[in-house]
């Protein structure tokens, strides 16, 4: 078992952070990589980014949004309990290179995925401008952690309850207009956000990395479930990615494939909620 040693809730309990004991993964994981977790014998294999590591203590950090049955089940796991399997690190690590000035755009749980990447980009000598956004103040996560790894931090909320009112794409436009020397953009968040960020960076002709989250099974390139179209070619996100050139990604196809199991997922989540009703930690 991979034991949870620290657990906290963010964004009004919709996002959970776990620090797990996984010494081998903690030693190996690089920015951009992910793990696959299974809570128990009957569980689904769920991919989550390694949001941080503490190699000395042998710990890894995962931060996930509760969106369906499996993440709701994860949420019930308390300190001292744990996951049956944690596999990884998987995927290609981010190619960290000094390009000068970089903008990092993170939305929702994408901020957690972004954190190690922004830190890595800064460590190799880049000037990092970070834009993070959420629907409202209460849903914004990791502000302090992002501030610590950024040269400039810009915050947006859709409803204007904190930072600038508006979408991260508006802020991105402003940053790109004011900083003609941006050499790289990294955009991670919900698919529509990534899609619109890429349309924007394309206008400014700035190379853009995105991190894709297709549905996965094995994570080793064996099943082809995670196939995405990049530059017209079929790629497997679990081994060729999860990061790709945002200007070549077919986001519409990704959006469509993410809906594969909508009906089944709802059934499974409803049953779970019915069974866990009142004493469930996720009851909000």
């Amino acid at each position: 078992m991979f034991e949870i040693v620290e657990r906290s809730e963010m964004a009004q309990g919709t996002i959970i952070s776990n620090w797990l004991r996984a010494p081998k993964i903690a030693k190996k994981a690089l920015p951009g990589q992910f793990v696959i977790l299974r809570a128990n014998e009957k569980g689904e294999r769920i991919p989550l980014t390694v949001a941080d590591t503490d190699p000395e203590r042998g710990l890894i950090n995962i931060i996930y949004m509760v969106v369906g049955k499996s993440t709701a089940l994860f949420k019930t796991l308390q300190v001292g309990q744990g996951y049956m399997d944690v596999i990884g690190p998987l995927g290609q690590p981010t190619h960290l290179e000094k390009v000068g000035k970089v903008v990092c755009v993170g939305g929702g749980t994408g901020i957690a995925v972004m954190h190690p990447i922004a830190r890595g980009l800064r460590q190799v000598g880049n000037h990092v401008i970070t834009i993070i956004g959420a629907r409202s103040k209460d849903l914004l996560i990791l502000e302090d952690k992002m501030r610590a790894v950024s040269d400039e931090l810009l915050i947006c909320t859709d409803d204007g309850t904190y930072g600038h009112k508006g979408f991260v794409t508006d802020m991105l436009k402003k940053v790109l207009t004011e900083n003609k020397d941006v050499g790289l953009a990294v955009c991670i968040g919900p698919v529509p956000m990534m899609k619109f960020c890429c349309l924007m960076t394309k206008e400014f002709n700035v190379k853009t990395l995105v991190s894709l989250n297709p549905i996965m099974v094995d994570g080793t390139g064996m099943c082809g479930c995670c196939r995405v179209r990049v530059g017209g070619e079929m790629k497997f996100a679990c081994v060729d990615g999860p990061e790709f050139d945002g200007h070549a990604v077919d986001f519409d196809e990704l959006t469509l494939r993410l809906r594969s199991y909508l009906a089944q997922e709802k059934l499974s989540y409803d049953q779970f909620k019915a069974a866990h009703g009142h004493n469930c930690a996720c009851h909000t």
């Binding site: 009957k42 689904e44 099974v217 997922e265 499974s268």
Partner: peptide, 14 residues
């Protein structure tokens, strides 16, 4: 993943 036992097992299949 025993999807034939979904939703007893969590993994779906069409």
């Amino acid at each position: 993943m025993k999807a034939y036992d979904f939703p007893q097992y969590d993994t779906p299949v069409v």
